[in-house]
């Protein structure tokens, strides 16, 4: 019996965001948008969903007098990502 893939992570943009954040300490919203080629509106919605799931932390502050949003993966997010990758490996091994 396979473990079901986490529906929060099993989405193109949300998975891309978490995969980006796993490799950095923290990243600004502009960095994530640039790397994922997503629209600001779409990215905002997905970031909010990840935040609600407790997978990322969103810090809103001012940088040079402009509002600036920074995202950071949480411990729960790291664990969820690791489980997702493990489940993915199981699926791929059976497919061989």
């Amino acid at each position: 019996m396979f473990k079901e893939l986490d529906p929060i992570l099993h989405s193109q943009l949300r998975l891309a965001v978490v995969s980006l954040l796993i490799g950095v300490k923290e990243a600004e919203f502009t960095f994530i948008r640039e790397k994922t080629n997503a629209t600001a509106g779409n990215l905002s919605v997905q970031v909010q969903k990840l935040k609600e799931a407790g997978y990322i932390e969103v810090i809103k502050e001012f940088k040079d007098n402009y509002p600036n949003t920074t995202c950071k993966i949480t411990k729960k997010g790291i664990e969820a990502f690791e489980s997702y990758v493990k489940a993915l490996q199981d699926y791929l091994q059976v497919g061989k």
Partner: peptide, 24 residues
Amino acid sequence: MQQDKVLTEQESLRIITEMIQKAK
């Protein structure tokens, strides 16, 4: 990048690798 597209396992793996690479 669209968000509601149904992902295959291979696509998921490709996204993860690509994004980790991009961050690096």
